[in-house]
């Protein structure tokens, strides 16, 4: 609830007790405080709007295709290519121009949003889920479990992820599902490490001791008492993992080991556009811009969420994994 005006509070002690309304001062938990901070942050709100637009584009792509009367893979050999077979620029019919096969770049960018969002959100979701689970177990149970799990996380973190990811994908054959699995496989460990640290300190708190005194089992304490305390960093990591996963997926597609053509993804489109960047700027610019704006919005939002959840920001110092490097 909104914080009451000072006058309203003092009013109950005023001269006219009958007229004074009793104003309850609502308790504002850390989540509510964070939400309030986030809502007042113009950058966060702006990014949220951009992300909503991308989501709308992804969801509305089939509808737009229906309205336009053609699909993302429809080839316009006559109207979509010049006499020399070169893509045509933006026009009323093709808002973002056409690509090398005379396909509608606008519609393909919209369809590309589906893949990017799906890969980004589900890969980070899986990664955060595994990371929280493993981190919680390592941090709370401790002992040999902690040693084994921590070492395992160290191993995963010290793998050359892009090389490994490509090697893995090449085995099973590229597809969206494989991309998502591979991305999640290489990003859960950084979440796990952070959650482990949080769980380690939460374990020593009095409320855990009191839960133990009340006879709560370990599983219950982990889920009911410790989990809420590690959720903050996990949420921040989730927001920051999404853009990283989107870039990872685009990189795999770009290298030809992600989602295969003719499915429209931003990475695919950019790979296909390379030979044409001299003659068809729109073919490079629009998927590139879509990719950049989306990752930028998620990153800015992630920063804002981190600041909102913990204005002092100990997370700012944590080591981050970046796989799009190289």
């Amino acid at each position: 609830m909104a914080s009451p005006e000072p006058d309203a509070v003092l009013g109950s002690f005023g001269a006219d007790p009958a007229a004074a309304t009793i104003v309850a001062i609502g308790g504002r938990g850390p989540w509510l405080l964070a939400w309030e901070r986030l809502r007042r942050d113009p950058v966060a709100v702006g990014c949220f709007v951009v992300i909503l637009l991308v989501v709308a584009a992804a969801l509305g792509a089939p509808l737009v295709a229906h309205l336009l009367g053609h699909g993302p893979n429809t080839q316009f050999r006559d109207t979509g290519l010049s006499a020399e077979g070169i893509p045509v620029g933006p026009s009323k019919k093709f808002l973002f121009g056409t690509d090398d096969l005379g396909r509608d770049v606008f519609l393909r960018v919209l369809y590309g949003a589906r893949i990017s969002l799906l890969a980004g959100v589900s890969a980070s979701g899986i990664a955060v889920f595994i990371g929280v689970f493993v981190g919680l177990a390592a941090g709370y149970i401790g002992g040999i479990v902690d040693t084994v799990l921590s070492r395992f996380m160290d191993v995963v973190l010290s793998l050359p992820y892009l090389v490994f990811a490509i090697a893995l994908v090449s085995l099973v054959g590229p597809s969206l599902v494989i991309s998502i699995v591979v991305i999640a496989m290489f990003s859960w460990a950084s979440v796990g490490r952070v959650v482990r640290g949080q769980a380690l300190s939460a374990r020593e708190k009095e409320f855990v001791e009191s839960a133990q005194a009340l006879g709560a089992g370990n599983l219950r304490i982990m889920v009911v008492d410790v989990l809420p305390n590690v959720l903050g960093p996990a949420i921040v990591y989730a927001t920051m993992l999404i853009p990283l996963s989107i870039v990872f997926e685009a990189t795999l597609s770009f290298l030809g080991v992600g989602v295969l053509p003719p499915t429209a993804t931003w990475g695919n489109m950019l790979a296909e556009s390379i030979p044409y960047y001299r003659v068809a700027w729109w073919f490079v610019a629009f998927p590139g811009l879509a990719l950049l704006v989306t990752t930028l919005a998620f990153n800015l939002l992630g920063d804002a969420v981190r600041d909102a959840l913990d204005p002092r920001g100990p997370l700012a110092r944590t080591r981050k994994r970046r796989w799009f490097r190289g």
Binding site: P243, V247, A250, T251, F254, G267, L270, G288, L291, L292, T295, L296, F298, N299, F324, R325, G326
Partner: peptide
Amino acid sequence: FYSMPTFL
């Protein structure tokens, strides 16, 4: 630049 894919 942090948000930018290397290939882009």
